[in-house]
Design a protein around this nucleic acid. Structure first.
Ligand SMILES: [Mn+2]
Ligand SMILES: [Mn+2]
Ligand SMILES: [Mn+2]
Ligand SMILES: [Mn+2]
Lengths: 225, 225
DNA sequence: CTTAAAAGTTAAGCAATCTTAACAATAAAG
DNA sequence: CTTTATTGTTAAGATTGCTTAACTTTTAAG
């Protein structure tokens, strides 16, 4: 049976697997989902029983086709809702994630496709994440890198902001950074202690936390994000 | 704690109490919510423990102020969603109820107020049910009666359609009856066997089931529905 | 290699929401 | 009034999704 909990688990498992290519650990999920490690083991057994994931005791979790499909459907709903809430209902950049986190589980495919159509079949959500189409296919996305891997002195465009923390997004809004902002990296501090970036004529010192949430692409001809 | 189940229970308890003014029975709720009578007794104890309802063993359920407030909030969300889905996203008259039945539980007050504003603070949902405002106050509604209490030969306006059954709404759509339609009652069959009504130049024979879902007001000067 | 720390699992138990079956109270009929 | 039908409650048990505590496996150091 499909439940809100399972959808949330699968979404995170899938995303993490895409990111790392490796089996997902109990500790990672416990941390992300804010539950005990025992709860993860428990759910892993149940998801595996439904063939949504492959679970090997002590060796982590991988998604199976059925789980992948479900995860992508939920991700699609999440991202379309975020854009809809921002563009149509004028909610704040920092608010839409939490709202979408709930709506994604109570929206029929039919409604979602209406919203997709209403928005003109968008390819990216307000945080720069790609929106899979109704067949589960993600749009081609130009390569991106973390701000932490950038070269000092160079100019970049912000192409993605990790939406995991409301505070981070709020802070960025406050200092005037948004998707598409062109920034110049002045300094990357070692040991993940943050960075100095220039946005227009304003120089900002940002924490390691904030820096890690920012993803960029070289600021040049390329229009694709 | 506030859960989807509890919200659904309270919504039905409240609506039924408004309708009858009497304590709500276990049997009624079991039927409406499609669960066993034992489940109702069980939930009644828990809702009573939270002071959302007053529950007297063997003598039914009444709402308490806290439960009433919660119920009205959910009803507001339900009805605003229905209108939004119909008007903004062009879903069908018969589809919006089921969709709203889920969305009503995962929508923040903030989002709901945005939608309310977007719609221009509407007073009635697509089935003619009044939408409480953000303070929980229902709009004044002109008196309505069931089609079954109508007088043969008279002309009426459809002011409300019970949204409980998708099939009923689908049928009405098919024969061209919607909110605001002006009809003439030709015959009311006894024993709840239905009625004969004329909509424009078309004469329709409708079942008792359908007739019971239709609510009317005299078709005259009055514009209020 | 050995061992201590970290990661992961198991066991026991709880809360929420259901189910079925047996039993009790109330209401309806005669 | 009694009897019976209807309505409602209890008891016992299942499932989902969690918790804490104890135990096991794996990993990282030395
Ligand atoms: Mn998000
Ligand atoms: Mn979610
Ligand atoms: Mn409805
Ligand atoms: Mn509902």
């Amino acid at each position: 049976m499909k439940t809100i909990s399972k959808e949330n688990y699968l979404k995170i498992i899938f995303s993490r697997e895409e990111e790392t290519g490796k089996p997902i650990t109990t500790t990672y999920l416990a941390d992300k989902l804010n539950v005990s490690k025992a709860a993860i083991t428990d759910m892993a057994r149940r998801l595996a029983a439904e063939e949504l994931i492959a679970y090997e005791r002590y060796h982590g979790i991988r998604t199976l086709p059925k789980g992948k499909k479900l995860a992508v459907e939920v991700i699609r709903k999440h991202r379309l809702w975020e854009l809809f809430l921002l563009e149509v209902l004028n909610m704040n950049w920092s608010e839409v994630h939490d709202e979408a986190e709930l709506l994604e589980h109570t929206t029929s495919d039919k409604l979602m496709n209406r919203i997709d159509k209403f928005l003109g079949h968008p390819k990216f959500d307000p945080h720069g994440d790609p929106i899979p189409n109704r067949n589960g296919k993600f749009p081609k996305t130009a390569k991106r890198m973390s701000l932490l891997e950038s070269a000092e002195g160079k100019k970049y465009k912000i192409v993605r902001v990790n939406d995991a923390s409301k505070d981070v997004i709020d802070f960025l809004s406050k200092i005037g950074i948004e998707l598409g902002s062109e920034i110049t990296v002045k300094k990357i501090l070692p040991k993940n202690e943050g960075a100095l970036i220039k946005n227009g004529r304003r120089l900002h010192s940002i924490s390691g936390n904030i820096a890690a949430a920012l993803f960029i692409a070289p600021a040049e001809k390329g229009r694709k994000r």
